[in-house]
Amino acid sequence: MTAVPTPSRTYDLSFARWVRENVEGGDKLNMCMQCGMCSGSCPNGQEMDNGPRKLFMMVRAGLKDEVLSSSTLWECTSCYRCYVRCPRGIPVTTIVQHLAALAAKEGYAPKNKVENYFFSKAFWWSAESFGKTDERLVTMKYFFSFGFGEGIRKALDNLKIALGMIKAGRMHIGLPHTIKNKSQLKAMIAKAKELEQKG
């Protein structure tokens, strides 16, 4: 990965082109026709400063600092509504999340935002996948959210605690536990999201 260029002038496309080459889904970003479907669909849209649509326009305009400092990156809950509805088939969620990762890496994001964001994402991932939070997986996913090297480092730091927990019978070994009727849980989550959006 080449270094993220800093545009020399307004609408210098170097940043946009870098995003196109280096951010997952970035090759589709320029397909945006600025219709607003994504931002309008976002259940967390009120919390965002820009929303994905405007964020994408800012990428094109080369507003690197503003893009990577945007709260939009941290408010995405990965509900994928924008992705599914986008009339241009742009993987909006993917792009936003990878921009968030980029922001974290480039040191734009406030530390707590990054940690909270990565943790809550890991937590939700487990809850949605298994109906339970599997501490091992949540922790590992959280650690590796910071990148591979950082993940290894964090994991080694916590190895002792983990082994202690296993010994004390507080953490099991083997396949993650799941709940019965996972499909019903999914329906419940979907409904909850819908209510949240309406409210």
Binding site: Q34, G36, M37, S39, G40, S41, G51, R53, K54, R85
Partner: peptide
């Protein structure tokens, strides 16, 4: 982004003014 029937019995239109 969304159109539906509101509680007042009238349709609503929801989205982002770009």
């Amino acid at each position: 982004a969304e159109i539906g029937l509101g509680e007042d019995g009238r349709p609503y239109v929801k989205g982002e003014r770009t």
